[in-house]
Design a protein around this nucleic acid. Structure first.
Lengths: 248, 248
DNA sequence: GTCTATACACAGATAGAC
DNA sequence: GTCTATCTGTGTATAGAC
C-alpha cells in the first residue's frame, strides 16, 4: 500500500519523478499535522488531514496571487468553503497559519535533498542528481516554493532563523560536493560558496519566473539540462587541459 | 554643475561607478516628478523634490522590512515626519504611491542598460560591460530593486504588463548580444533566450540574497567577476577548439 | 465540528482649521 | 503646505447556538 522510498532518482526525467514524489508527499502531510497538533482544536484525524490540506492549498492560491498579508480570512473562508469560525479550529492565528505552512514543506524538502546524494557516487553524478531533484521538487510543488520564497521576510525572528538555517544547510550540501570534486581532481578550485550561491539562483529562478519559462516553452527537463551544462562548463576541469598546457 | 553623461562604464570598478551614477539619479528624480505631476497637489518644485524623495526612501525602508501591504500610512507618516494629511498631497492613494515608486527607477534603469552597449564594441566586451552595469546599479539602488521584485505581483494588470515588458526588453538586449556573438563565431550556438534567463537569475540574486553575500564577505566586484567567468565558460567557444577537433 | 453574529482595533482616506 | 480630528470600511478573532 505505502509507496516505497525511492533509492534511485538518478537518470529519471520529470514524468518518472512525479510518481516517486508521492512517497514524500504522504510522509510530509502526516508530519505537518503531528508537529502542529497542539494548535489544532479538531480531534478527528481524517477531518484534519482533509481540511488542513484544503486550507494550505487555498492559502497558497490566494497568497501567491496577492500576497499573504493582503489575503483576508474572509478570502480564505470563501476559497476553502469553511466558515471563519471553522478555520480558527485549525490554527490559532493568521501568523500561526503562515508558520505551519512554511514548516510544512521544508523538512521533507531537506530530507529529499539529502536522500538524493549517494556517498559511493562520483561528485559530478551527485551534483547532476541534486540539480535535477531540486528542480523536479520545485516543479511538483511550485506554489509552495514560490510562497515560501516571497513570504519569508514576513516571518518573525525565530522562524526566520529556521528558514535561513535550512537554506545554508542545503547550500552546504553543494559546497561539500564541489570540495570533494576538487580533491578528486575533477572540479576546478575556487570560491565554492560563491559558486553554490550562483547555482542556487538558477535553481530558484525556475519557480520564481515560471511565466517566463512557460512563454519560451521550456520544460523542466530542458531547464535541468541547461543548468547542468552551465555548471559543468564552469566547474569541470577540461579533460585535455594537461595536454594543451603541455603543448603550449 | 550638472554631472556629465558617462560614455565609458567599461573597465570601471564599483567605487568609480558610484561617482558616475549621480547623473542618472538626478535625471531620474526629475522624470519621476514630471511624469506624475497631475497626481501631486503641491505646487512648489523644491518642496516636491525634497519630500517625495523622503517618501520614497521611507516606503522602501518600511516596505522591504515588512512588505508594502503591511505598511500602514501611519507607519509612513511616522517614518517621514509628515502627517497623514500632508502625505496625501503627494499621491492620490496608497496604490498610486506604489505605481509611482515602481515607475520611478525603471525608466532610468532601462536607459542606463541601453547606454552601456557600444555598437562598435565586440559582443563579449558589451556582455561583460552589461553584467557589471547591472550589478553596480542594483548595488547602488538595492532597496528599490528588492522592493520592485518583491512587490511586482501587487500591481494591477496594466502596470504589471509594463513591468513585464521592461523585463523582456532588457532580456532582449542580452539575447541580441549572444546572437551577434554567435554570428561572429565567438559564442556557441544554443537557446539564447534560456541562457539569458539564467544570466538574469544570477544578476538578480545579488540584490535578492544580499544577506548571504554579506555573510560570505563577497563584494560586488568579486561577484561581477565570478558571474562573468561563469558566463564566459559557458558561452565562449574555446580558442583552440578547432585545433583539438582537427587533432582528434 | 461547523455555523452565524458580533466585538473592537485599525486600515485608508478626507475635511477644514491654521 | 501641513496639521488635527474624524469618517467609514475592513481586518482578525471569538462567543455561543446548533
Amino acid at each position: 500500500m505505502e509507496p516505497e522510498k525511492p533509492h534511485k532518482i538518478k537518470g529519471m526525467n520529470y514524468s518518472e519523478f512525479q510518481k516517486v514524489i508521492q512517497y514524500y508527499r504522504k510522509s510530509n502531510a502526516k508530519e505537518a499535522i503531528s508537529e502542529n497538533r497542539k494548535d489544532i482544536r479538531v480531534k478527528k484525524e481524517k477531518t484534519v488531514t482533509k481540511n488542513l490540506q484544503r486550507i494550505f492549498e487555498s492559502t497558497l492560491k490566494i497568497g501567491n496571487k496577492k500576497g499573504f498579508q493582503a489575503m483576508s480570512m474572509r478570502d480564505l473562508s470563501e476559497e476553502t468553503g469553511l466558515s471563519m469560525g471553522a478555520l480558527y479550529a485549525y490554527f490559532t492565528s493568521k501568523e500561526n497559519l503562515l508558520v505551519m505552512l512554511q514548516r510544512n514543506g521544508r523538512d521533507s524538502f531537506q530530507k529529499i535533498l539529502e536522500d538524493c546524494i549517494e556517498e559511493e557516487s562520483a561528485p559530478l553524478d551527485n551534483l547532476r542528481n541534486l540539480i535535477k531533484t531540486h528542480l523536479f521538487m520545485s516543479e511538483a510543488m511550485q506554489p509552495w516554493f514560490y510562497f515560501t520564497y516571497m513570504e519569508g521576510k514576513n516571518l518573525k525572528k525565530p522562524e526566520r532563523k529556521v528558514a535561513v538555517d535550512h537554506e545554508m544547510h542545503s547550500d552546504g550540501i553543494i559546497i561539500k560536493l564541489l570540495t570533494q570534486g576538487e580533491e578528486e581532481g575533477v572540479f576546478k578550485s575556487g570560491n565554492h560558496a560563491l559558486t553554490t550561491a550562483l547555482i542556487k539562483s538558477m535553481l530558484n529562478d525556475w519557480y520564481l519566473k515560471r511565466w517566463k519559462y512557460a512563454k519560451m516553452k521550456v520544460s523542466v527537463d530542458d531547464y535541468a539540462e541547461q543548468v547542468i551544462s552551465f555548471v559543468e562548463s564552469f566547474c569541470l576541469i577540461p579533460e585535455d587541459a594537461e595536454i594543451i598546457q603541455a603543448e603550449g
